[in-house]
């Protein structure tokens, strides 16, 4: 078996509990139609109004710039940590191989 086969075997699907389907069906049967609220009473409307108020105080270009910089920084961090992981993997692998070679020579 190669590593990908091991991965498939490890990630094989699991069954939910035996009563899962029955519980979902029971809940679905209880589902009521959503009562239509007037637009001005909907929470989403208030959230949007608050968002617009905040946005009006800060120039969009600044927000956009800050957001882009933040994304760049997060990406850079991920790349850095991945690079460290690769470094660690290869150092450990090298150590293991050197160790095996040393054992072979001393036996």
């Amino acid at each position: 078996m190669n590593f990908e086969d091991d991965l498939r075997a490890a990630l094989r699907r699991e069954q939910p509990p035996a009563d899962f389907a029955a519980r979902v069906l029971a809940k679905a049967a209880q589902t009521e139609r959503v009562v239509a609220f007037p637009v001005w009473r909907r929470p989403a409307t208030w959230a949007m109004a608050a968002g617009l108020a905040v946005a009006a105080l800060v120039p969009p270009a600044v927000l956009e710039y800050r957001h882009r910089e933040e994304q760049r920084a997060l990406e850079a961090k991920k790349e850095f940590l991945f690079a460290l992981q690769v470094t660690r993997t290869k150092l450990q692998q090298t150590r293991a191989r050197v160790h095996r070679a040393t054992m072979r020579h001393t036996l």
């Binding site: 910089e69 760049r72 920084a73 997060l74 850079a76 961090k77 790349e79 850095f80 991945f82 690079a83």
Partner: peptide, 16 residues
């Protein structure tokens, strides 16, 4: 391919 020059490393450090 990962290429992190000093500027990118400084950026990365902000979020560590």
């Amino acid at each position: 391919k990962i290429t992190l020059d000093p500027d990118m490393l400084r950026l990365a450090a902000r979020f560590i």
